[in-house]
Design a binder for these strands. Sequence first.
DNA 1: ATATCGATTTAGAATAATTCCAATTATCGG
DNA 2: CCGATAATTGGAATTATTCTAAATCGATAT
Lengths: 142, 142
Amino acid sequence: MPQAITHESLSQRLADSGLRSTPQREVVYSVLLKKRDHPTADEVFARVKGELPTISLATVYNCLETLVQCDLVRAVNFERGPTRYCPNLRPHAHFHDVQTGRTHDVDLPPDLLDQVKSVLPDGFDANSVEIIFRGKATTPAC
Amino acid sequence: MPQAITHESLSQRLADSGLRSTPQREVVYSVLLKKRDHPTADEVFARVKGELPTISLATVYNCLETLVQCDLVRAVNFERGPTRYCPNLRPHAHFHDVQTGRTHDVDLPPDLLDQVKSVLPDGFDANSVEIIFRGKATTPAC
DNA sequence: ATATCGATTTAGAATAATTCCAATTATCGG
DNA sequence: CCGATAATTGGAATTATTCTAAATCGATAT
């Protein structure tokens, strides 16, 4: 089973970046892994409080930012809504369901991002490509 | 010369949506057409003041929103930065230059968006696809 | 022309998400 | 176990945007 980065490796990743492992970081990350519904910082805050009742919202923001820095989590934005957080590390796009407000991951075929990058004219060197779909999901799936 | 929608057609578009043509809407739109550098609402405000010194920021927001509703302008967001406005109606992606903060339009081959849409699993019906590149533009072009 | 009525503009207050700050507390290496 | 440094905390500050209520405008019917 690839792609599942578990707790042991979190402290490793942190150490690699010269950062410390803390309970707050561990729990924030575990909460993201447990329910992958692209929660906002507020939602993460609420969930983490179950385990760490004294954690502050500022810390949740700090931890999320740290996880993003370590490339364990992606920050996702739709319009100017609150930032959402996604621990899916595979290449994927996001589908934003305008009816429900829910966000779904859409895995991408291995070559698609390169294919898309190939439309860039000379002189443009992209180190990331983001693809966002908007519409409605007819299947009430996951 | 296609794609250039001029003032006459603005009042038409507004009328089509049951909206009125006003000096504020005209000038906001003309400012977007004149300098296509993806300005923020504040920047539009500053530019419009040259012609309409008494316009308010709230009105600029209102006008921009109206133009977006009429499909004459696209609102563009990068992370949680201020919304930027783009009067380019051709299918295009955005390249966000992380060095300069500037945004460049990247026109897309006619079939690319459909091709990208084709990766959606059954049950997902997208009515828009947004593609954002991030990186640096080596050419100091436009 | 003029009164009317809804649409539009306006200034300023309010909101929402996030960041900043200064003080306290925790963690890791020696 | 101690000290240096990093992380956490609560609250204030910031930023972009939206809301609100009043004033003004514009098209239409008279």
